[in-house]
């Protein structure tokens, strides 16, 4: 299953990629990483990933708008929002736009793995 990682922090992008080295995540393969929504849309069109991790606060285009555009391009994609914004309204907004999961930063490896398991099982 192809995954695109979208986050303006390189540390977070690398962290998510490293968590996916866990044997339980062997069915997921990172096909691209983007630091903002604009680059993410390009990579999304190019690689057609089934899974996306999405930050919210990013330059150029934020994660809510990016989620909306990706879902318009492929309504079947599974978008997991990974954000520090821990208010309910932000999570709700992303879910309304088509995201299928939400995990708050800072996250543990196990929390991220569980979120991927839930997402891929659904």
């Amino acid at each position: 299953m192809k995954l695109l990682i979208v986050d303006d922090s390189m540390i977070i992008r690398n962290r998510i990629a490293r968590v996916l080295e866990d044997p339980r995540m062997s069915h997921i393969r990172v096909v691209g990483m983007a630091p903002n929504g604009v680059d993410a849309i390009e990579l999304f069109k190019m690689h057609k990933p089934k899974l996306v991790t999405m930050d919210i606060t990013m330059p150029e285009m934020d994660g809510v708008e990016c989620t909306e555009q990706m879902v318009r391009l492929n309504p079947d994609c599974n978008i997991l929002v990974v954000s520090a914004l821990s208010d309910k309204a932000t999570a709700l907004k992303a879910l309304i736009k088509g995201a299928r999961g939400f995990i708050y930063k800072p996250f543990s490896d196990e929390q991220l793995i569980n979120a991927f398991v839930e997402l891929t099982n659904s």
Partner: peptide, 15 residues
Amino acid sequence: DAVGEIANTIAGNAR
């Protein structure tokens, strides 16, 4: 990148 991400996370969590 790390200090920026930490500032962002603390403010984001406070939201």
